[in-house]
Amino acid sequence: MWPASQAVYQSLLVEDAFGMSSQFVWLDNFIELFEDDHYIKTFGRTLFFSAMVAMLSLSVSLVLAAMADRVIRGTGIYRTLLIWPYAVAPVVAGALWVFLFYPTTGIISTFLTSMGYEWNHQLKGNQAMALVVIAAAWKQISYNFLFFLAGMQAIPKSLIEAAAIDAASPAKRFWTIIFPLITPTTFFLLVVNIVYAFFETFGIIHVVTKGGPANATEILVFKVYNDGFVGLDLGGSAAQSVILMVLVIGMTIFQFKYIERKVEY
């Protein structure tokens, strides 16, 4: 059967990954990786990066969604306006933000300089990191916003009305009713955002900083590419891919388990 053969073909592709890395002395590659300070640092940097991206984009979109849920008129318009950064390619998003922050001419960077803050993401590692985080989070806001809004609109209105009758203020209603009830959404989004920051931000980083300055923004996916295609250390790069695969599978399984269980109150 054709779909079945398709599945076999796919599984062959995946097996190839293991096959090729196991043909060589693959265990050595792994040992080398874990003894490599640089790799461990990259790992930590990736975690930091994803945490920042997830936090920034989740909090902004949560606020926006809460507001959009409150207003009666115009929700649709706001949604249309907020939805489309999703469609912008990571590379394009990266290019936009580089333009805004370009050290000599960028609009925001010259503004910061005039405020007395020296901005040069091409030289300063932490600023480069900040820029990459902003660009990555900006692109993810629309996705999170959609899910938060859908989650909030699924909450029965009667619950909120009851709380309003009991004289709970909007802020109190948000924290005691809406926020706990959208916990599953929040958790789902958290995982999605972390996966996004891990794997889909390659374009942004490649165009904004190329992992520099001095590896300050080099995350795992970028290192796979860098070692494999620029440094031509194929074995090491393949070993890193395998580690990444395990990570993705682990995260997805974790997510499915959690979602199936739903969050209990």
């Binding site: 599945a7 990954a17 090729m20 889909e200 996916v221 494999g228 393949a238 891919s241 599978i249």
Partner: peptide
């Protein structure tokens, strides 16, 4: 099997795929 391949973004299996 399909489900597992679904979870592997190209970015992850990039090197072997390139060779194929």
């Amino acid at each position: 099997m399909i489900f597992i391949t679904l979870m592997l973004p190209v970015e992850v299996r990039i090197l072997p795929t390139y060779e194929v």
